[in-house]
């Protein structure tokens, strides 16, 4: 599991500009293009957000937990964990919108999409060749897509 890759953030580099949120929404829009995405209905949603507590800013997204509470709480079997990659994904076809996962997530990383009646969270932009859009968009490079060792090496001064 130590080799599973996810999006890590460095609060010391985050300026709180929220560019990652916009990039996330655009990546999950139908057109995948900012100007067209503006006119989509229902509007695209981002699956992460930048939180600020006591002056510390941090983009928060799904931690793809080793023992995901959301997975155990899901009554319809929509949430699964890939034991090889470590990714936790929601199968939208199975999601019934009961919001159990939303309630149990300790990070607040799952949110209810009322327009579509589905739970949404970071899917690591699976299918995008250039990797997670938030990482691409960050102007201060406060986000990294990698495994725990890569993150530790990166955050050392």
């Amino acid at each position: 599991m130590r080799n599973s890759r996810k999006v890590y953030a460095r609060p010391d580099l985050c300026t709180g500009c929220r560019s990652c949120e916009i990039a996330c929404a655009v990546e999950h829009s139908a057109s995948k293009e900012l100007l067209s995405a503006l006119f989509e209905s229902p509007p695209p949603r981002y699956r992460m957000d930048v939180q600020a507590v006591n002056g510390v800013k941090l983009p928060v997204n799904c931690r793809h937990c080793t023992e995901p509470d959301c997975l155990f709480a899901c009554k319809s079997g929509a949430i699964s964990k890939d034991l090889k990659t470590g990714e936790v994904q929601i199968n939208l076809a199975k999601c019934v919108g009961c919001w159990m996962c939303v309630m149990v997530c300790p990070f607040g990383a799952v949110s209810p999409d009322m327009d579509r009646a589905k739970a949404t969270k970071c899917d690591l932009c699976t299918g995008s060749a250039s990797g997670p859009a938030c990482v691409q968009s960050c102007p201060t490079k406060a986000l990294i897509y990698g495994n725990a060792d890569e993150f530790n090496a990166w955050r050392q001064p």
């Binding site: 560019s19 949120e21 916009i22 990039a23 503006l38 691409q136």
Partner: peptide, 28 residues
């Protein structure tokens, strides 16, 4: 690149010093 979407869309306001404020373009 990438250009800041808030600025590009005209949704970033730096006029007063309570801000800068920005509006999420996708919020309803």
């Amino acid at each position: 690149l990438p250009l800041c979407a808030f600025g590009d869309l005209g949704l970033c306001c730096t006029i007063c010093y309570m801000g800068p404020c920005r509006i999420d373009p996708f919020s309803k």
